Structure formats: C-alpha cells, structure tokens
Amino acid sequence: MTTDPAPAPAPHQSVLGDAPDVSFLLQHTAHVLTTQMAAALGEIGMSPRAHCVLAHAAQAERTQAQVAELSDLDKTTMVVTVDHLERAGLAERVPSATDRRARIIRVTPAGADVLAAGQQIVDRVHAHVLGALEEPERTAFVSALNRLVNGHLAEPADSPEGVQGVRRPRQART
C-alpha cells in the first residue's frame, strides 16, 4: 500500500508551520510590481531607477550622494545611472554652490518632460495594483505598509559576519 506524499504548502504559507510566509508575500509582490513598472516605463525608454533618481533630483537641489541615499542606490549604481541620464540629456551634474567638492544633480528641461510622463506611468501602475483591492482593503493595506516602513521595518538588521544572502546596510554618509 502506497501513501500519497503530503501536499506541498501553498506559497503563502510557511513550509513548517501555519504562519503566513510574509517574506514570500512581500518579495513576490515587490518583484512582480518591479517587473510591471519596468515594462511600463520601458514604453518611454526609462527605467524605474532612472525615474527615481530624476524624481528625487527634481524635488530640491540635492547632491549626488543625497539623491543616492534617497533612491537607495550604492555609489557605483548611482554614478552609472547619472552617467546614463547625462548622455540622454535628462540631467546634468553641476557644482554645488555650498561645497565645491559636491555635485548637484540638476534635471534638464527634457528630463522634466520625461519625468512628468514617467510619473503618469508610475501613478497608472500603482492605481492598477491598488485597484485590485476594494476601497477598505486598499486603505488598510497602504496604511499597514506605511506603518511597517516607518516603524518595525524602517531599518535593516545587521547580519552576522559570514552570513550571506542578506544585503548589508549602507555605511552612513557624513
């Protein structure tokens, strides 16, 4: 007599327990949203990273380091992104008026136009995602995510030496 193996847990459940697999749920939704955003912004030749950098640079006079911090980009990725934006004529590095060693990321008029078109796309994708939820769920979902981002999940944990697979937090910039 053969017995059927136990059914695999649903992807949203923990493998060994009954608790929801919050890591899977957050990672999967973030991954799918990222791919949808990249595809949508690709329609105008923009990446989510480039849109993010332009958006932060357009809000205020900010140095490259400040924009990188706000965009959650490491130094190398930031340099590559700004190089691309400069070659496309969407942004330029200009000297800071207050710190001659620093460079301000200035959005060009063409960059402002692309940013506006990109923001419409970003808003459309977000509205589409949130539109899958009924209004009370949508309000609760966004509220809960904001509470987590600003509270319990505001800062990444330090990983012990030798532990791999977890992105190490960026060093504070002074």
Rank of each mutant, 00 (worst) to 15 (best):
R93H: 12
L26Q: 08
L25I: 15
H12E: 10
E161A: 15
V82S: 04
P109M: 04
A172Q: 09
M1C: 05
G42W: 03
V53Y: 04
A144H: 08
D99P: 00
G42N: 07
A97V: 09
V114P: 01
S23T: 14
E69A: 13
V142S: 14
A157D: 12
G45T: 07
M1Y: 09
S159V: 05
E155P: 00
E43N: 06
V32I: 13
F24N: 05
R49A: 12
R100S: 15
A112I: 00
P11K: 04
N150R: 10
A102Y: 04
P136D: 09
Q164T: 14
G162P: 09
V129A: 14
A8C: 01
E43Y: 00
V80Q: 14
P95M: 06
T77Y: 01
G151P: 06
V80G: 02
L33M: 10
V32P: 00
I105K: 01
T3M: 11
Q171T: 11
I44T: 04
N150V: 01
A8P: 03
L70G: 00
G89M: 06
T81N: 04
T77M: 08
I105P: 00
E134H: 10
A127Q: 09
R138V: 05
D99T: 02
A65Y: 01
A172C: 00
A60Y: 04
V22K: 04
A157R: 11
Q66M: 11
Q36K: 14
Q171V: 11
R93E: 11
Q171A: 15
A116I: 00
A157Q: 12
D123V: 01
M1L: 13
D21S: 07
A68V: 01
E134M: 07
H12S: 08
L73F: 02
P95S: 13
P20Q: 02
G165V: 04
V79L: 10
R106A: 15
L90A: 01
T63G: 12
R49M: 09
Q119N: 15
H12V: 06
E92T: 03
K75P: 00
I105Y: 04
H31N: 11
A57P: 03
R87K: 13
R167W: 02
Q13L: 15
S159R: 10
V94M: 10
A8M: 08
P109R: 05
V114E: 06
V80R: 15
G118A: 07
R170F: 12
G89L: 04
T34K: 12
E155A: 07
Q66S: 11
V142F: 03
H51W: 11
R100H: 12
L25R: 10
G89Q: 08
E135V: 14
D158M: 07
G151Y: 03
R147Y: 04
R93L: 15
T35N: 14
T139C: 03
Q27I: 00
V163W: 13
M37I: 02
K75R: 14
T77S: 13
R93Q: 11
A112P: 00
T63P: 03
C52I: 01
V166L: 15
A102V: 02
